[in-house]
Design a binder for these strands. Structure first.
Lengths: 147, 147
DNA sequence: GCTTGACCCTGTAACGATTACAGGGTTTAG
DNA sequence: CTAAACCCTGTAATCGTTACAGGGTCAAGC
């Protein structure tokens, strides 16, 4: 069990770029690691697993703040972990809303795609449709909400 | 048919914030409008419709660059509009891929949600799962890709 | 020895779209 | 006369990641 990986090796093992690893450290998701003689960061197995945790969370679409909360729970094993369930549930609901919204967009797009093959822009149904003022939702911040 | 709206009135009519309108102007999606005596921007009906076009495009999830291309086609009515269809088709495909990916994430989350009610973090299935290294996709830039 | 390339370091800016300021001016209603 | 509600410009923040610039260290190969 090797215990002194440099950042590049951690990157290839975790699929997380060195830049991101340093970023997580700056944000406090990772404790500043020990340094080798030349000032290089040296990571141990626990750090590797922590980075794997973060990447898995990110791949699920969790934001770094939520991941930080989950890591805090993990760091305090005696804590009540209802909060973890809250985070996951909230994110799942968020995802479901987002999927519904995207499906509505896709449906709307399907209605206009392939309607203007070979024509002139003046008669293009896509462009005409965009000028029609019935956006799916016209409220202020209601575009394609972020992931 | 009024033809001299100030930016705030345009904002309420189009559901687009004044900041965004000025932003679109800076990016070249909107031509710099005429100015009133006090230097205030004055918009006419055509500008309102153009902003509606942009908002509708955004609500469909198109990026401003694509919208700019569509506006360029609209500004040149004699152009072949195959490009419009390309943009819409590409975006639709993008949406469909994204929906599929999000559904996979939601499925994965559903498997862990509600598995740790009332327990201690040390035994939390959500946290345990995140430490398991089978992210849906562990490749470099493969998190929840942007909209 | 000396260069080339692959690492590592720090700090800063870019991406995209929007929002939020700071710091100022003008108008309007009380 | 003053406070609120507008408008202006320019800059910085948001989020997570990537890409630089400008520098240091170390190995292999000439």
């Amino acid at each position: 069990m090797k215990s002194a990986y440099r950042i590049g090796e951690v990157a290839t093992r975790t699929g997380c770029s060195p830049e991101s690893i340093r970023h997580y450290e700056k944000l406090g998701l990772l404790a500043p690691p020990q340094r080798g003689e030349q000032g290089y960061r040296r990571y141990n197995q626990a750090a590797l697993e922590r980075i794997g945790f973060i990447r898995h969370g990110r791949s699920l679409g969790l934001d770094l703040h939520s991941i930080q909360e989950l890591l805090a729970l993990s760091d305090n094993p005696d804590t009540d972990c209802t909060a973890a369930d809250d985070i996951a549930s909230r994110h799942l609901q968020h995802l479901e809303e987002r999927i519904t919204a995207l499906q509505a967009l896709a449906d709307e797009l399907r209605q206009v795609v392939h309607q203007c093959r070979g024509g002139k822009a003046a008669n293009c149904r896509i462009i005409k449709t965009l000028y029609d003022h019935q956006p799916t939702c016209s409220k202020r911040g209601c575009g394609e909400m972020n992931a």
